[in-house]
């Protein structure tokens, strides 16, 4: 592998990693605090991409697309939590998996009814459409670098909110021991609704950033959901820090696995990584529950 290819693939890996982190952050907190498995998280990713594509088609402004799509995704998340998922906190994981899998089908069909089966075009903003020249003559798409920067900024922001603010203190307490947090006067359900909406906003953000790179189409949320679940489990359920580290491991591992190994083996790399890490640390890298 030439040095320039190595640099390019490393950047690709980190960029996939930050995308996965945006997805996994919401997933891991929802699972950690309310013990809810939400397979429909990928649908929020898809929703973000479709909202952005529509606004972009109407206004030709990527900035406006972001400004509309992120809050819209949060609203969709808040609605789903309020209308459906709230009734499933006390139910078994199997019930939760079934209802959220059902939600995936509903979301996919709603999107098919509104937007059709043909991918909707979403191109990167003009300012970021070209390549950037890096050291050593490496060229790299500006938009992918921008994704990397946005992901890193969001990760930093989340870290500050979760580890240094009052709401973060509540989130960590709720994720660690829910009855105890309630006994101390934390309205865990309110905190959870906020976390769910914030997680939906981040999933929407990830989806709209992925749009110009992949394709805005029905079912785009499922492959990334699987990777995000892997990240959640490896990182330790409920741990933001774990999600960040695991997302980078999976992003880089998946990217290099696909480049260096034969295709059949390459797509297995992350699952072998997951098995190895779980054999070594069954509760993930940064376990939250004692």
């Amino acid at each position: 592998m030439s040095p320039s290819l190595f640099v390019e693939q490393s950047l690709n890996g980190v960029q996939l990693g930050v995308m996965l982190f945006l997805m996994a952050a919401g997933l891991t907190l929802v699972f950690g605090i309310m013990n809810l498995i939400n397979l429909a998280h990928g649908s929020l990713y898809m929703a973000g991409a479709f909202f952005a594509a529509t606004v972009f088609q109407l206004t030709d402004s990527f900035t406006l697309a972001v400004l509309v799509a992120v809050p819209a995704s949060a609203l969709v998340g808040a609605f789903v939590e309020w209308a459906v998922l709230r009734r499933f906190y006390q139910r078994s994981h199997l019930d939760q998996v079934l209802v959220t899998f059902g939600l995936i089908l509903v979301f996919n069909d709603v999107v098919r009814m509104i937007w059709g089966v043909v991918p909707v075009p979403l191109s990167p903003p003009d300012a970021l459409s070209g390549p950037v020249h890096l050291f050593g003559g490496v060229e790299y798409p500006a938009f992918r670098l921008a994704i990397l920067a946005v992901g890193a900024l969001v990760a930093l922001g989340l870290y500050i909110v979760v580890s240094h603010t009052r709401v973060g203190m509540w989130i960590r307490a709720g994720a660690s021991d829910r009855p105890m947090a309630s006994a101390l006067g934390v309205d865990v359900e309110l905190v959870f609704s906020l976390v769910f909406s914030a997680g939906a906003a981040l999933a929407g953000l990830a989806g709209l950033m992925a749009g110009p790179i992949t394709a805005v189409q029905v079912g785009m949320g499922e492959p990334i959901l699987i990777l995000a679940l892997v990240v959640t489990v490896i990182g330790g359920i409920g741990s933001i820090r774990g999600a960040f580290v695991a997302a980078l491991i999976i992003g880089i591992g998946d990217t290099f696995g696909r480049v260096l190994l034969p295709p059949a083996l390459g797509s297995m790399v992350i699952f072998m990584l997951m098995a190895a890490i779980l054999a070594w640390r069954p509760k993930g890298l940064f376990p939250v529950h004692g």
Binding site: P179, A183, L184, G185, D187
Partner: peptide, 8 residues
């Protein structure tokens, strides 16, 4: 009343 309100 829920637990958190009793706490308050």
């Amino acid at each position: 009343e829920p637990a958190w309100r009793r706490a308050r």
